[in-house]
Design a protein around this nucleic acid. Structure first.
Lengths: 106, 106
DNA sequence: TGCCTTGTTGGTATTGTTACCAACAAGGCA
DNA sequence: TGCCTTGTTGGTAACAATACCAACAAGGCA
């Protein structure tokens, strides 16, 4: 079994992905780098809120940023995180299936 | 891009994995079913706390439970979630590598 | 230099999460 | 039935996460 320390390190990375806004950010960045203003324009959130979400992703090591001219460019550092979305979809589909079973039983 | 609704559904599942205790539970269950008392004995936590963590995993659809005799048996419903650990490890290793780069630069 | 754009940081209120203890419910067994 | 084991649920306190506004810092450009 994994140790508690190992589990804590892992959970920090997973926790960073566990917010709808940050998931959408990752989803957008999987197609290539994006500037702050591009990412900001996707949401109806304060710029400080967007900045802080990106900071969470950065601190987890999921994205990196680089100042380029006047813009801050964000990059998905570990694209494999998006592979996980397929499994999440499997969980969702399994949930739907089980719900249907429950409905049939009634 | 994924919708906000889709992102919220996905993030609920990911959030359920974003706690060290629940990660360890998933790690143990990947090798087969376990009873509540087996899982409980792995931690120095109140039984109510363990029960609530398992409830979070159940509500996300990651595990299921079944009463068997006097015991409650837990089962990992979607084993592919453990595939993700490999990617999390990649993130961790990348973080370590970048840290070394930073240290070299100084 | 002064101003504008672009992001980040600080402060704070609100909300969500987690852990404990206590009480309860369900079922096995003497 | 009475008691014990096994887990769950309710209550609550402590802590973490999130969103906003305001203020700030850095750099480009007139």
């Amino acid at each position: 079994m994994i140790t508690m320390e190992e589990a804590e390190i892992r959970s920090n990375i997973i926790k960073a992905m566990g917010h709808p806004v940050r998931l959408m950010m990752i989803d957008v960045l999987k197609d290539g780098t994006r500037s702050f203003s591009e990412i900001f324009s996707l949401f109806t959130l304060d710029k400080s809120t967007v900045s802080k979400h990106l900071l969470v992703l950065k601190e987890a090591g999921i994205v990196t940023s680089q100042k380029t001219g006047a813009d801050m460019i964000y990059r998905l550092e570990v694209p494999c995180v998006t592979d996980f979305f397929g499994c999440v979809t499997a969980v969702i589909e399994n949930n739907v299936r089980r719900q249907q079973v429950c409905l049939c039983k009634r």
